[in-house]
Design a protein around this nucleic acid. Structure first.
Length: 585
RNA sequence: GGUCCCGUGGUGUAGCCUGGCCAAACACGCGGCCCUGUCAAGGCCGAGAACGCCGGUUCGAAUCCGGUCGGGACCGCCA
């Protein structure tokens, strides 16, 4: 076989006219005229028409009658300019065709379970079951190519900037915080487990101690958490860390790379620098930490305006320490009851009580001054509808964030051609855990804004961090922080977190020890490469940018994973399966 | 842990709300025959689903109800 260097089907052009070629590819279509037979031959580069004419190649023409979809063939023949009037403007190869002299069927194919040609993808489970056929579709090969290009540009850019790519282990150590780990039992150390990396976070910090100074890695990360349209258990990060830097260096580097990617992959010149938005404003105005800025619709806090309200639903929430947030829907006065109910349903899906609105149900419980105040705060104009959510702060934000996005979508307010990047910065250092206790928002090594430590005792949740997220069009594309390098500062933070040094040592002793040997100030960022590729490929689904993804229930429908294993394997590992508790009907 | 949507020949859909006219329609695909310039080729003929599965309601269920399995979206979760 010498087809490797052969010309590609999809690359044939008028300039090749007169050449004798060998073509290798898949049969995309057969048009059999009884005498003449046309074959569309497809490879990764595209499709070209092959003509079999019994008058000049009877044997090949006879064989061609037996061809079926997805047969893999070799065709040799001459590239010819198509007869005038027979060109196909829809095909890049449409000016030419190959006059077949010889046909060799390399392999046959069963009728595929779904069409490889054609735009519409079949149901997801079928695509995943036959992923190799799904990937054969031009759209999927195109996305694979986008991903390849992204990786290549990343390598090139960071190499120019003198970054060193370093690989870190897949068999790591489990830590109780963060996402749930995937565990790997140790055979040699029975009863002990490795953990697959959630991210190379601690290792890249050690590489800074090592003096690498500029590190990056396109790293596979694994988290055993619930899936979403933009989340897979296995995903890929561009992990970056540098020394002697501040966040401005991270922003500059990142923006430069993002700008290059957008320019080279989709031909878009991005405006820089990216705007910045504090986490406080983001949650308040957009109800999310990853705002979509392609539409306005700002949420307003109207709790103060209602501090003396008689309306019971607001009274109760406000007295209970909750908040009231409001959003004006431009021209929303014409929303039907049904549409309003759907928005209420959205609020309920976030476990909220619902929504209030005016003009409408809530108006009779509010004073004219309150209504006017809220209208002013939300910028509502004549004919607008004002939606209100009253709840605990975090929940009210979630509800309003969902409502804001839904309203924008329904009313076609999203400027879909725009790329609205922003840095969410600064972020908070601490947050409240489920039990109302203070915990870290990112990880315990995130560097606080030093001046804010002055009020850490009184208002710990207002302490800012040198931490940032990169967002675009409602997606979080990456996040990072500067790290604490000063021992005193680190111990102080542990103290505030109520983490006894002993406890910390158990988990992160290796890191703390390393930091005793001359640690450079450092910080970095990690991007979700899958999401970057999603944006550049124009899909809203992470499964489309991963060659072999898992379903929402974390199964691989093609491999049939996960699967039970041979008891012998379990025994070798010193593992025994617990009987499943019987189902209680 | 929870909420919601979807599941009809190989594929994509219609039918389901308003049960009987549905052993189920349409398109593509598939098989056969005809056809020397098509390119979503065309023409003729044909095969193919008892409606994911289980149970219930009913004289009667693809259609209503419950459960279950599979896929998806979301909330929680994802330092």
């Amino acid at each position: 076989m010498s087809g490797y260097g052969a010309i590609k089907c999809g690359e044939l052009r008028a300039e090749h006219v007169g050449k004798e070629v060998d073509l290798y590819g898949w049969v995309a279509r057969r048009r059999d005229h009884g005498g003449l037979i046309f074959i569309d031959l497809r490879d990764r580069w595209g499709v070209v028409q092959v003509v079999f004419n019994p008058a000049d190649a009877p044997e090949a023409a006879a064989q061609a009658g037996e061809l079926r979809g997805e047969y893999v063939v070799r065709v040799s023949g001459a590239v010819k300019r198509r007869l005038p009037g027979n060109e196909n403007a829809k095909l890049p190869t449409g000016e030419v065709e190959v006059q077949a002299a010889e046909l060799e069927v390399l392999t046959t194919s069963r009728t595929p379970p779904f069409p490889i040609e054609g735009e519409a993808a079949p149901e997801e489970s079928i695509r995943l079951r036959y992923r190799y056929l799904d990937l054969r579709r031009a759209e999927m090969l195109r996305i694979l190519a986008v991903r390849h290009r992204v990786n290549k540009i990343i390598h090139g850019y960071l190499d120019e900037q003198q970054f060193l790519e370093v690989e870190t282990p897949m068999l790591m150590k489990s830590t109780p915080e963060g996402a749930r780990d995937f565990l790997v039992p140790s055979r040699l150390h029975q009863g002990s487990f490795y953990a697959l990396p959630q991210s190379p976070q601690t290792l890249k910090q050690l590489l800074m101690v090592a003096g690498v100074q500029r590190y990056y890695q396109i790293a596979r990360c694994l988290r055993d958490e619930a899936l979403r349209a933009d989340r897979q258990p296995e995903f890929t990060q561009l992990d970056i860390e540098m020394s002697f830097n501040d966040e401005e260096d991270v922003f500059e580097l990142t923006e430069g790379l993002i700008a290059r990617l957008w320019k080279e992959v989709v031909g878009v010149e991005l405006e820089r620098p990216f705007p910045r938005l504090s986490i406080r404003d983001s949650l308040l105005k957009y109800g999310t930490d990853k705002p979509d800025l392609r539409y306005e619709l700002e949420i307003a806090d109207v709790g103060d305006l209602l501090k003396d309200t008689e309306a019971r639903i607001f009274r109760q929430v406000l007295d209970g320490g909750g908040v009231v947030r409001a959003l004006a829907v431009p021209g929303g006065g014409d929303l039907t009851r049904r549409e309003l109910d759907e928005l209420v349903g959205l609020a309920k899906s976030a476990r909220g009580q619902g929504l209030a609105w005016f003009p409408g149900q809530i108006e009779k419980f509010l004073t004219a001054a309150e209504v006017e105040g809220i209208r002013a705060a939300t910028g509502a104009e004549e004919g607008d509808l004002v939606l209100l959510a009253a709840d605990r702060r975090r929940r009210a934000e979630t509800i309003m964030g969902l409502v804001r996005a839904e309203v924008a979508r329904r009313r076609n307010l999203v400027r879909t051609e725009e790329w609205r990047f922003a840095w969410v910065f600064p972020m908070y250092l601490f947050e409240e855990d489920d039990d109302g206790n203070l915990t870290y928002a990112h990880h315990p090594f995130t560097r606080p804004v030093e001046e804010d430590l002055a009020f850490v005792e009184e208002r710990p949740y207002d302490v800012r961090a040198h931490a940032y997220d990169l967002v675009c069009n409602g997606y979080e594309l990456g996040g990072g922080s500067l790290r604490i390098y000063d021992r005193e500062m680190q111990e102080r933070v542990f103290g505030i977190l109520g983490l006894p040094l002993e406890k910390v040592r158990e988990r992160f002793g290796f890191l703390l020890e390393a930091f005793e040997y001359g640690v450079p100030p450092h910080g970095g960022i990690a991007w979700g490469i899958d999401r970057v590729v999603m944006m550049l490929a124009g899909t809203d689904n992470i499964r489309d940018v991963i060659a072999f993804p898992k379903t929402q229930s974390m199964q691989d429908l093609m491999l049939g994973a996960p699967s039970p294993v041979d008891p012998v394997q379990l025994d070798e590992l010193g593992l025994a399966l617990k009987p499943r508790p019987p189902r209680v009907p």
